[in-house]
Each structure stands twice: as structure tokens, then as C-alpha cells.
Simulated assay, not measured.
Amino acid sequence: MTFWVLLFLVMFSCTSALTERQFQVSISCSKCEVGGLTPFTLTGNISGNNIKPTGYELFHGVGYYKFYTEGAMTYYQALSTCKNDGAHLAIINSQTEEEVLKSIYAKNPSAKPWAYLGFNDIEKEGDYVTIFGERLCDTGFMKWHPGKPDNHEGNEDCGSMFRHGGLNDLYCDKHGPWPFFCEYELPGHPSPKIS
């Protein structure tokens, strides 16, 4: 009977994985002789967690996103909000991903025209890196909005995007609140640790 319960649990985990839940199965056994009347012990442990945080929208093959239209007063507050969700500020890695964010922006016409993303040049002016320390030019997407970056007033060090597309440099802690995008990685594509 234990075998059938475990089989059901494994089947449940596979089915649930298709409905945005992820499960880890751990099985151990001793003296697993299937034939004859030799007793054996089979123990299993299944744990799971919800993959999709509340309010995130799935775009198949790209990722989960949440647009905070009310924004954050600073870039650092936006970083913290995403981290509290178990996510990170979005990093655009392709034209497809930019199109996804533009489509989300289009549903929110009253949001300010610039939204924080997960890159900056805080350490060295003009040397843009992601929140994971990767050079922006290595992410697969580096299409700037015309005339950007411009480091307006000598104080635009945080990354953003324009509602109609293109990257921008933006104030990290002035003239907020600024909307921002959080990204939650697809299963099997864990995000690097934020340094």
C-alpha cells in the first residue's frame, strides 16, 4: 500500500507542476525486494511551494512580471519591493521581453512614462551593470531610447525603460515616485544572487 500512496504523490507532484506549483520528491528505501514476502520500508517526502507570487502575470517562455504603477520614491525601494516578492527588478534580455513590458505598460496609460529596471551605472558613470553584476551589454538587450543615456543634471544613474520602448537612465532618488517592473524567473531558470 505504501508504494501506491507514494506513486499517487509522485503523480500529484507532476500534475501540480503543470498548474504553477513546484514539488520536490525525496525517496529512500531499505531492503527494497519487490518479489516474495520480504518486508521493506519505503519512505517519501514531498514539499512544495507556489511558484507565482501574488499579482504576477505569466508570459509563456519569457517570465512572470508585476508592474508597480504607483511606483517607489527611490530605486532602492523598488529593489526592496521586488526582493520582498521573491523576485528582482526586471532585466530585459531580448526584444521579446521588451515587447512584453511594453504591453503591460500599454494597459496602464496613467503611469509615468519611465519605469525602473534592474540595471545602473552607480559605481562608474557610463559603465552599466545589472543588479547581478553582469555588464548590460552582455544581457542580450541594449537598445536605448533616442538621445539616451544622457545623465541629465549629472544625476541619472539608475536604469529604466520608456513606456514605448528603449532603455533610459533615470534619477535613483529624485522626482519619484517612479513605476517599476519586477520579474520572477521561470522554473528551471533561477536568477543569480544579487550582490
Rank of each mutant, 00 (worst) to 15 (best):
L42I: 15
P187T: 05
K83V: 05
T81P: 00
N93M: 00
Y184T: 10
S28N: 14
Y128S: 05
Y76F: 09
D121R: 06
L136W: 04
Q77W: 09
L136I: 05
T38F: 03
P190M: 12
Y65L: 12
Y76P: 02
E134C: 06
E156M: 08
A90Y: 13
E98N: 07
L6G: 00
F3C: 05
P177A: 04
P177L: 06
G140L: 05
P190S: 05
E99Q: 15
T38E: 04
N155K: 11
I92D: 00
G48F: 06
C182V: 06
G147A: 10
I91K: 01
G86E: 06
P146I: 03
P146M: 04
T69M: 05
C172G: 11
R21S: 00
L18W: 09
A17V: 07
T74F: 13
A17Q: 08
L37I: 00
S160A: 15
W4M: 04
G154R: 14
D121T: 09
E33Q: 08
W4C: 06
S103R: 14
Y64C: 07
Y184P: 01
E153G: 01
T19Q: 11
E123Y: 15
T139C: 03
K107T: 08
P177V: 08
S110C: 01
S28Q: 13
K174C: 01
T41E: 13
Y68I: 12
I92V: 13
L186R: 11
I194D: 02
S103G: 13
N49S: 12
E99G: 06
G166L: 12
T81F: 11
E185Y: 01
H189F: 10
I104M: 10
E153R: 08
S30N: 14
W4S: 09
H152K: 06
I46L: 15
A17Y: 10
Q22K: 03
P113L: 07
K148W: 10
E185D: 05
A72R: 01
C158D: 04
C158R: 14
K143V: 15
N45G: 02
L7V: 08
L167H: 12
K31L: 07
D157L: 09
H175L: 15
I46V: 15
P53T: 02
Y75G: 04
F141Y: 15
W144N: 05
H60T: 06
M142C: 10
Q77S: 11
G176Y: 00
N108W: 04
Y76L: 07
A78V: 07
W114R: 14
S47G: 11
G133I: 14
M142D: 04
A78W: 09
E33M: 01
S28H: 07
N168H: 07
C172Q: 13
F141M: 04
W4P: 01
F67S: 02
H88C: 02
H152A: 12
N84R: 15
G44I: 09
E134S: 15
K143Q: 10
H60K: 11
Y68Q: 13
I131T: 08
P53G: 07
Y116S: 01
